[in-house]
Write a protein that binds this DNA or RNA. Structure first.
Lengths: 246, 246
DNA sequence: AGGCGCTTGTGAAGGCGTGCACAAATCGCG
DNA sequence: CGCGATTTGTGCACGCCTTCACAAGCGCCT
């Protein structure tokens, strides 16, 4: 889902201290660790063991240690990890200290929900603008923010540097919106439209397709159903709750 | 994100013809192929080459061929794949011919959007019930469907076999809802709440965390920003559109 | 100060997934 | 009927990720 070069170029420490070359899989887990850490911090924990944090994040403890080792040694042997320190470190790595501006394009069912989603603001993202191509929706106020016409995108982008564009339009409009976003300098796109986007190589696209998630679950339902028809019946006895911690 | 056993038990073909043991990565791509195929079918295509379908789905053609080979030989050398046949085959594998019933728990911003999401119905899923714990929301009609209280879950489950439960509640309520769903026999859960769910091993959980997606993009923004500060300036010249086909 | 228990950080092994490159197979045409 | 163009299906090698197992390091207790 991305073919960008990392280019270590060691020794060249300008403003940023030689950005670490983290595995993609690790990056995808850092937000989960961060959430667990925030939870622990609110509970008053000073330190956590890899075992404890791993359980809270729902991963293997060895994996967690390896992940954290990639971003430096912020743990103390025999004690664990300093919660506050680790929070700062991960937030820095993820660039969450920048309070990035996000715009949502497409104010349908989903765009409406995204505009009001509290989880964004609490994680360092500011939804700064809502756009739609439908003049009937322009002017509508959602979550204290007026919907603007997509033609205003360029003007808004000049005024406020947009870090991430969220596409929540029908799939037929998605590519055109992506092109517009790219044209005004957006280099990160979160796409909710069920279609493939074509963008320049320097632009990162992540896709979330709700129907696909259901289809994957449907497959597993199908598989499970076909297995219960076999000997050694799996039965449907619910109740053997798995202890993974809360 | 799952630790289920597939258990091949070869030779034991009962009603279902010995369910294929597909790699998880392949399964995750099948819905994407299916969408592309539907698109092609509507355009009147009888057959597709692996190259063509791969481009439409945004993947490598070799990967696509390998994926399709896992579910049997439905292509013809020198010609390509029969679109209609492949659609049927993938829909069968994914179990989409069952028109599975879905319920949404938590009618906040997101649950509201999910209840009205057209992408579900068009893909063989029926949203049959909406639940919430807030009595103030019970009775509200969304998309022609009345919100019911979560206490009614059991009654609804007895009447209509629920295949998949969607959790769109605040994270504090998610585990309790998951327990309820499991208790009424739901074995597939799509979780939008930012928290780790603990469920029995026979239950499949998939998680979608919108904030995590933004954080991953934020990381890449951070990384790109730190690279532009290095020699060989990457510049921001937009316009070298990558040709991957529409 | 010394030893002991606990926890991190990491080397190594194994598994999974990807992508190349090519043999096998099919169609159409002369 | 045979040949060439085309496209599938797959053996193989490579790289990433995961997992185990253990040495190294730190704090605490005696």
């Amino acid at each position: 889902m991305s073919q960008q070069r990392h280019g270590s170029t060691p020794g060249e420490a300008g403003d940023v201290p030689a950005f670490p070359d983290l595995p993609e899989a690790t990056i995808a887990r850092l937000p989960e660790y961060l959430r667990a850490l925030h939870h622990l911090a609110e509970a008053g924990a000073e330190t956590v063991s890899s075992e404890g944090l791993a359980a809270a994040a729902g991963v293997n403890s060895a994996k967690l240690r390896k992940d954290l080792s990639h971003l430096g040694s912020y743990g103390t042997r025999g004690v664990g990890y300093d919660v506050a320190l680790l929070v700062d470190q991960i937030e820095y790595i993820l660039g969450l200290d920048k309070n990035r501006a996000v715009c949502v394009v497409g104010v349908g069912n989903l765009g409406h929900a995204l505009a009001g989603y509290a989880g964004f603001a609490s994680r360092g993202f500011r939804v700064v603008a809502l756009f739609d191509a439908d003049h009937g929706k322009v002017g509508e106020v959602i979550n204290g923010m007026a919907v603007r016409h997509i033609d205003d995108l360029e003007a808004v982008a000049e005024q406020e540097s947009i870090a991430i564009g969220v596409i929540a339009t029908p799939p037929t409009a998605a590519q055109a919106v992506a092109d517009l976003l790219v044209a005004v300098g957006v280099t990160s796109i979160l796409n909710f439209a069920p279609c493939v986007l074509s963008v320049p190589p320097n632009v990162d696209v992540r896709k979330v397709d709700l129907a696909i998630e259901l289809q994957i679950l449907s497959f597993h339902e199908h598989r499970k159903a076909s297995l219960t028809a076999l000997p050694g019946g799996v039965g449907g006895s619910a109740g053997d709750q798995e202890a993974v911690g809360s």
